[in-house]
């Protein structure tokens, strides 16, 4: 290979410069395209929802025939109940798992197996969790009911009646969502626990505290902001998720809220509803949006669905804002 002449060298350099410029512009365009996509999406949805999103939309139930009378109330209450129970189930189990893995488990096959298992569960499609929920919670493996191994239909105590099998109800959905978001919560909590400096643990142990006292009174409070952020992100995933709930039976067209509690005043008038709600059938916001977007009338397809999306996104934004505030405040307060 002969050395390039000075003219060739300048040409080569020029070409290199041009290539570099083009490449940089391409990269720049790709990067900002995600901002453009987000803006188009948000503005487009807001534009379609304009005039359709009002107080009536938030406070009325769905309507099969009149688009201007359709509302998201059933979805709002359904989502609220489902998420409440999802949080109740997933947060204690998730944090406890993370504590075991980070603070108690010895390095060995058990810890490794659980860890690999969690990583793989995080990649399982959400609809597969729906199939698990359908078999395990809605039908309970066919163990109960008339043809089941156990001939019982319900469990009653303290005025609470639990149907067996659970059937298509709020609790079955919450259990399904719990299994789906557990890996996310565990991984986030593990990271938060790992960020707590070992010196804190050593100091506590050196003062004579037991392992559990150290973990519960020193490590856990120090890791709380990190855990809370992870939990909120996981929960907002559950709020927007519809696929597994189609399987565990969120109904598309519902004209009541779980337990017939459609306003805070109903709780006072009908306290029994609080006990019935967890085992009532329900719908959630994403399922309602899915249903509206599939209607043939353009008013439903375009506008009512868009109004529902704005409500759903507003709820998600609120959750994320809380997560950001927690992260910001903890950064200011804690300095290791």
């Amino acid at each position: 290979m002969s050395a390039p002449s000075p003219v060739q060298t300048t040409q080569l350099l020029g070409r290199g410069k041009r290539e570099g410029r083009i490449f940089q512009v391409l990269c720049w365009m790709s990067t900002w395209s995600s901002v453009a996509i987000l803006l188009v999406l948000l503005i487009g949805v807001a534009y379609q929802a304009r005039g359709w999103l009002d107080w009536e939309f938030l406070t009325s139930f769905d309507s099969r025939r009149f688009p201007d009378k359709a509302g998201i109330l059933a979805g709002l209450w359904g989502s609220a109940w489902t998420i409440l129970f999802t949080i109740l189930f997933s947060v204690p189990i998730g944090i406890a798992s993370a504590l075991y893995l980070e603070e108690f488990a010895r390095d060995g096959w058990l810890k490794r197996t659980i860890q690999i298992n969690i990583a793989n569960l995080a990649g399982v499609p959400s609809i597969v969790f729906g199939m698990l929920g359908l078999t395990a919670f809605v039908y309970m493996f066919g163990l109960f009911g008339a043809q089941g191994t156990f001939q019982v239909n319900q469990l009653s105590f303290l005025g609470l009646t639990i149907p067996l099998p659970l059937g298509r109800c709020v609790v079955a959905a919450a259990l399904t969502l719990t299994l789906m978001i557990l890996p996310v919560i565990i991984v986030a909590s593990q990271e938060a626990l790992r960020a707590v400096p070992p010196s804190l643990r050593h100091a506590s142990l050196a003062l004579g505290a037991t392992k559990w006292q150290t973990v519960s009174r020193q490590v856990l409070p120090a890791a709380t902001p990190g855990i809370a952020t992870g939990v909120i992100l996981a929960v907002s995933r559950a709020v927007g998720e519809a696929a597994p709930l189609i399987l565990v039976g969120a109904t598309t067209f519902v004209l009541y809220a779980p337990g017939n509690i459609a306003a805070p005043s109903d709780i006072v008038e009908n306290p029994q509803g609080l006990l019935e709600a967890p085992f009532d059938s329900f719908t959630v916001m994403p399922i309602q949006i899915f249903n509206w977007a599939q209607q043939s009338k353009p008013e439903y397809r375009q506008h009512v669905a868009a109004a529902g999306i704005v409500v759903l996104l507003a709820v998600l934004l609120l959750l994320n804002a809380v997560a950001i505030i927690i992260r910001y405040r903890s950064q200011k307060r804690l300095n290791y």
Partner: peptide, 27 residues
């Protein structure tokens, strides 16, 4: 620029999939 783009990507990742379905269908 990173401090602008990173949150935007997080937001894109946080948008529920029904919203993307609607976006495909209507836009």
């Amino acid at each position: 620029v990173r401090s602008i783009i990173k949150p935007v990507l997080e937001l894109l990742a946080g948008v529920p999939s029904v919203v993307y379905g609607y976006f495909a269908l209507i836009f």
